[in-house]
Amino acid sequence: MAASSIAEAVASHLAPFLGAFNAKIWIRTVAEKKLGKSVETLSRLDVVALSQGLQSALSTFMGRVAAEELVQKIQREVR
């Protein structure tokens, strides 16, 4: 999967809940601050770290359990 598609695929799971714009911003923020990568250089190998990096922020708004479940779904489906 192309790098930009990784970000888009992850964003598609978040957008229904956070909004499309926010989903992209959150992914960019985690990629840059926690992975030290730009969105354009993300690979399949980054999906787990990316989704785990999003989990804390997601937990704030949807609770720990729902955030965990959503992160696990992202890891299952984005490859």
């Binding site: 229904p16 499309a20 926010n22 949807m62």
Partner: peptide
């Protein structure tokens, strides 16, 4: 406003 477009808004 930040969550606009998503269900959490």
């Amino acid at each position: 406003i930040e969550l606009r477009g998503g269900l959490f808004s």
